[in-house]
Write a protein that binds this DNA or RNA. Structure first.
Length: 242
DNA sequence: CCATTAAATTCAA
DNA sequence: TTGAATTTAATGG
């Protein structure tokens, strides 16, 4: 790859990602500027599904820029959203090791650019590069932690608490933009993450509005009393940053 | 869970 | 930029 192109690519990444822990950022020379680098850049439009449950695993996705929801479909056909992911996150890692098929699906929530690395190439990198392997291991450990917390939250919290927890998660992860959560989600998506139904979410939102804890204009949700929301779930405060 | 109405979002002219 | 068409929210049974 020509030097100039490398340089532009690096600058582009540095701009897209200011997170020091971002693996693509940290290992960009290894991942992107390597001669043997086996990657493709995938440009998807909003609402596009790029991982289908049950499809064979050939590699791993890194989000270059955008937002993605990762979900699993239950027996009843109900969608359980596992997590939301934005810039620099890894998608599809569960199927990476021994698994042959994806156990999750992933859909973009806005126009998103993804890097796709082949399994073979990443395996080579992991074998050759201890530091990269270590960071990947930390990532997996953290993911495991997170998913265990989530199991707890779904089994021990009330519906109202889970909805509040979801709001706080979105707030933590995506922040606010002029008074509203910086990610428009449908009530159904809140429900799918909180493990409840659309109607429950709508009713709880109405209550929270009456109580002056949140405001809502369509898909734009504003948190007006963050502290009180936190207080309600404080006895369960096992959520780790994610 | 479903039906109805209100509201918001999208899309194309 | 508008408003008609479509999708989504909210409520009550």
């Amino acid at each position: 790859m020509p030097i100039l192109e490398n340089h532009l690519l690096s600058k582009e990444i540095a701009k897209a990602c200011k997170n020091e822990n971002c693996l693509v950022h940290k290992y960009q020379k290894l991942l992107l500027n390597n001669l043997e680098s086996d990657r493709t850049l995938l440009k998807t439009k909003k609402g596009q599904q790029f991982i289908i449950e049950g499809a064979p695993v050939n590699g791993l996705f890194f989000i270059k820029k955008g937002i993605v929801k990762v979900f699993r479909t239950g027996i009843n056909g109900k969608e359980q959203i596992v997590r939301f992911a934005n810039d620099c996150e890894i998608i599809g890692h569960r199927g990476f090791g021994t698994q042959e098929y994806y156990s999750i699906g992933a859909t973009t929530l806005k126009d998103t650019e993804l890097y796709y690395f082949s399994k073979e190439y990443l395996q080579k990198l992991l074998l050759d590069n201890p530091s990269f392997s270590y960071d990947m291991m930390l990532f997996y450990a953290n993911e495991l932690n997170r998913s265990e917390s989530k199991v707890k939250s779904i089994s021990q919290m009330t519906v109202r608490e889970r909805v509040i927890d979801t709001l706080l998660y979105i707030n933590r992860k995506f922040g606010e933009l002029k008074g509203y959560l910086n990610l428009p989600l449908s009530r159904k998506e809140y429900a799918d993450y909180a493990g409840t139904t659309e109607e429950q979410v709508i009713r709880i939102f109405s209550l929270l509005k009456k109580e002056g804890l949140i405001t809502a204009k369509g898909k734009k949700i504003g948190i007006t009393n963050l502290q009180n929301l936190k207080n309600e779930i404080s006895e369960h405060n096992f959520y780790l940053d994610s």
